[in-house]
Design a protein around this nucleic acid. Structure first.
Lengths: 115, 115
DNA sequence: GAACTATTTCGATGTCCATCGAAATAAAAC
DNA sequence: GTTTTATTTCGATGGACATCGAAATAGTTC
């Protein structure tokens, strides 16, 4: 059921407002950004942003940490790496080898169209 | 408005059935798969699969080509690469350099957390 | 052109989601 | 403890989507 998890994360990233927020966090790096700064940057109503951040956190793409009165948000990079890997890995895994037989134990590298 | 395009593609991939179909095509490699084979593999009603494929094609993630009576579907790898790049690129671009000043013209490589 | 296979379009149904404003909570400052 | 700032929860609204079965279309074969 790994597919379900990936689909959930992709769906969460598939909303323009959420994608914008997530990208801002990715750009911000390990220091992250507080909710308020995100809100001002994206020009979105607070309650709406809160809703979106909740979904990002729920799927493991973003983490939050209290910092006094503000809430610090950070992109969770391992989750991003896993998701990208899920999409890119096994590319052409089922493709018939163009000419040569794949040697046993070797990953099919020939014909990789998504290099 | 490149963000809108990326969000649309992510949202399209964010449905389990569609993600399954897309992954099957990615695995299949450049040869692609006909609709009927996808249908049997995913065990999904024909009309539903047709609906999903239409969305994958509409966002440029999949291409189709008539092959006699069957319709051949292929993952469009440049689109996938562009989407993955959109997510991964500019990681930490806004992050303050930890110690050294970034030399002018050089991309901030230090602190890249998503390597 | 009739029969057959492959795929799509249509119409209907139920569900989930984005967005907002107002009110509620959390934490700090005074 | 009251004021102030930061963020969330609540409730409502309008719109989009997934799924299905039945009927329609495209293309092949006889």
């Amino acid at each position: 059921m790994r597919l379900e998890q990936a689909a959930r994360q992709l769906e969460v990233l598939g909303n323009p407002t959420r994608l914008q927020a997530y990208r801002a966090l990715v750009r911000a790096g390990p220091e992250g950004l507080p909710v308020g700064r995100l809100q001002r940057r994206l020009k979105v109503v607070g309650s709406t942003l809160s809703h979106h951040l909740r979904r990002l956190v729920a799927t493991g793409l973003v983490t939050q940490e209290r910092r006094g009165t503000t809430l610090l948000c950070r992109a969770h990079y391992p989750a991003m790496a896993a998701l990208l890997g899920y999409l890119a890995d096994e590319c052409c895994a089922d493709a018939p080898a163009p000419a040569a037989r794949k040697p046993a134990g070797a990953r099919a590298e020939e014909g990789k169209a998504c290099a």
